[in-house]
């Protein structure tokens, strides 16, 4: 029997503090004010405060994930940490030791093989890709993929920095903080992921650059938003089609699609483009950006978690997670829901 992997449990952490889009606009110097909520559909997002930081978001998400898991913490065999941000509360950015070393110690998974990867907003999807290979080859029996995105500082820096519209820092105003964790378990291949395909379209790698700021604490992100959206819309349908075809599936087989959560209008434009290309639509395209903003590498799993808690899905529903990230990285993850639906929303 060949081995596959499946999503055994998911956990998240959202900071308590909610920040409205209006309050962000009110803090900006630009006049007339940007119609941020109208353009993005984002009403509010969560921001870290006090002692909250990358580490605490990741650790709390990992602990939440373990509460839904049948795997005990000391039995976790591998941890892959996947965030873009590695900020302490004072916005010091940690290069080493790796964050995975710290997370595994804090949660008590001391025996786990651990390392950090970085692939922009596709970090967790990339982590799943790697973990699946380790599990398929029976190097490990399970793996936790975890991320803590403390990225509100790029929003705060953009508020100070943006003086004209349009600005390459506009996308920075859409972000929110969150942690997410997923445990993959071992299963028979036919019950595992149906599609796990990621690809780097590197000719577009300069369309979004984030770096530690030399003007402010934290980071700044510079995005050519219109170009990035245009490229994503033009390249993604054929990439999804190819990914599904290789697994013997078609777009009409998908029940729910969860795309990377950037802005409502952009997601809707993508959905219309998909409908025109494929001639069909899933039952629903999941959008959660309204209340959480863009939480980078955690968005797909935040959205999946919330839908599970709301009992949106049934067993055997086929889910497509569509990852987009700077790089340009596109990723398609397809799986049928299993016992996961029974664990949430009780």
């Amino acid at each position: 029997m060949t081995t596959g992997s499946y999503i055994e449990s998911i956990g998240i952490k959202l900071p308590e503090e909610k920040v409205s889009t209006q309050s962000i606009i009110d803090r900006m110097k630009i006049s007339p004010p940007i119609k941020l909520e109208k353009i993005t559909g984002i009403k509010e997002r969560h921001f870290c405060s006090g002692d909250e930081n990358t580490f605490s978001l990741a650790v709390d998400a990992a602990i939440d994930c373990l509460t839904y898991s049948s795997i005990k913490v000391h039995d976790i065999e591998m941890i892959i940490y996947c965030s873009i941000s590695k900020f302490e509360s004072d916005l010091s950015y940690y290069y080493e030791p790796s964050i995975s070393t710290i997370v595994k110690q804090k949660i008590g998974a001391n025996g786990a093989l651990s390392f950090d990867i970085s692939n922009a907003c596709a970090g967790m999807a990339t982590g799943i890709h790697i973990a699946n290979d380790f599990i398929q080859r029976r190097v490990v029996n399970n793996c936790m993929i975890v991320s803590g995105e403390f990225i509100s500082n790029i929003c705060n820096n953009a508020i100070q920095s943006i003086e004209t519209s349009p600005s390459p820092e506009f996308a920075s105003l859409t972000v929110g903080d969150a942690g997410a964790a997923v445990i993959l378990g071992k299963t028979a291949n036919e019950n595992g992921f149906e599609v796990l395909n990621l690809q780097t379209f590197s000719k577009y790698s300069k369309l979004c650059i984030g770096k530690l700021s030399t003007k402010y604490p934290g980071a700044q992100m510079f995005t050519q938003m219109q170009k990035l959206q245009k490229v994503s819309i033009s390249e993604s349908p054929s990439f999804v089609e190819q990914s599904l075809r290789e697994a013997g599936l078609s777009y009409s087989d998908i029940d729910y699609m969860i795309p990377h959560q950037t802005a409502k209008r952009a997601i809707m434009a993508g959905a219309i483009n998909f409908k025109e290309y494929f001639g069909s639509s899933p039952k629903e395209i999941i959008i959660t950006v309204e209340l959480m903003g863009n939480t980078a590498s955690t968005t797909l799993f935040l959205a999946l978690y919330h839908q599970l808690q709301q009992k949106k899905f049934r067993k055997e529903d086929r889910i497509l997670l569509l990852s987009f990230a700077s790089g340009l990285v596109m990723g398609v993850i397809v799986f049928k829901l299993n016992e996961l639906v029974d664990k949430y929303g009780q």
């Binding site: 790796s98 070393t101 390392f115 990867i117 970085s118 692939n119 596709a122 190097v139 990285v329």
Partner: peptide
């Protein structure tokens, strides 16, 4: 056009190289 190259970064201090080799070795083996 769909030649698949997945590119990403890996960080684990001075040991990151060994994990990167381990990952590529695994993908080749499978």
């Amino acid at each position: 056009r769909f030649k698949k190259i997945l590119a990403f970064d890996l960080n684990n201090g001075a040991c990151g190289l060994i994990q990167a080799l381990q990952i590529i070795d695994g993908y080749i083996q499978s």
